[in-house]
Simulated assay, not measured.
Amino acid sequence: MTRVLLADDEAMIRAGVAAILATGEGIEVVAEVGDGRAAVEQALATRPDVVLLDIRMPVLDGLAAAGEIRRLLPETGVIMLTTFGEDAYIERALGLGASGFLLKSGDPRELLAGVRAVADGAAFLSPKVAHRVISRLSGGQLSRGVAARERIEALTVREREVLTLLGGGLSNADIAARMYVVEGTVKAHVSTILTRLGVRNRVQAAIAAYEAGLVGGEG
């Protein structure tokens, strides 16, 4: 069972999102709150697999809450679910350790897919957000690519293989199956990769893989 905490200051939005999640097999909403501070407190109390956070909330905004939850509960995945898809919000959310960024205007199926992906240790961006991220990367791809390739040189051949699969959106379980190893080995590789690349989460590692040409590039 994937346990989800939902935080949004609009009761009708919370009800709608909860109703969508209720249609997903194996997904349970363990708490619903209306501000970021309550989200942090309930996350500590319920230890959910995934926290869905609106960005603009009272007391503590969703971005600040995301940072606290990732710091206090590193095993809990965070997804930003918002009306606001500005580049600054996307960049800050990913920098704080969010593993997903979804727009409220998106297809409800994206919500279910995102929750399942993040709960499984993968990352998930709505198609519109992914397009914006890739577009920004493409604008400075040459200089970014050189820097990313230099960073990736510190990885072993096995770690590069894991990074490539991670960049392709695979979860730890999927990578383990593809590489014929146990999931714990993949988790260890991912932890080492994050440290050696100097990034905070899988999304940033996936971006580094893209910039270096391991995924969706020229290689």
Rank of each mutant, 00 (worst) to 15 (best):
L163V: 08
L197P: 03
A122G: 12
V190N: 06
A38D: 10
E153S: 14
A206H: 09
V78R: 04
R200M: 10
A122E: 09
A43T: 10
G85T: 10
R160C: 12
Q141R: 13
G114H: 02
R178G: 10
A117T: 04
A148W: 11
G100V: 03
R3A: 09
P74K: 04
E91L: 14
G16I: 04
E91R: 14
R200D: 10
A38R: 12
L155H: 10
A122H: 02
R136T: 09
M12F: 15
D54C: 12
L197I: 00
G213M: 00
G198W: 07
V78H: 05
L60H: 00
G16W: 04
A117P: 00
I152F: 05
E28M: 14
M12K: 15
A209Q: 02
V157W: 12
R92Y: 05
V190A: 01
G167V: 11
V133Y: 01
A122P: 00
S105H: 06
I134R: 15
I207N: 02
G85I: 06
L102C: 01
A31H: 13
E10D: 14
E10A: 15
G145W: 07
R149I: 09
S143T: 13
A123V: 13
R149N: 13
E10H: 15
V157H: 10
G145Y: 08
D120A: 14
E41R: 10
G62Y: 01
S126H: 11
L155N: 08
P48C: 06
V4D: 09
T195W: 14
V59M: 03
E25M: 08
G121S: 04
V50C: 07
Q42Y: 09
K104Q: 00
L94I: 15
P127V: 00
A205P: 02
G184C: 12
G77I: 09
T192N: 14
A130F: 07
G97N: 06
E159R: 08
E211K: 01
V33G: 02
S135V: 11
G169H: 04
L125W: 02
R3F: 10
L94A: 06
R3Q: 07
L81W: 04
V51R: 00
L214M: 08
G168K: 14
L102D: 00
Q141K: 15
D54F: 10
G16L: 03
T46Y: 08
G95V: 02
D87K: 15
G219S: 13
E28W: 11
E91Y: 11
V118H: 04
G62T: 03
L166D: 08
P58N: 06
V203D: 05
A88P: 11
L194C: 01
N201K: 08
K187E: 13
T23A: 07
P48H: 01
E32N: 03
R70G: 12
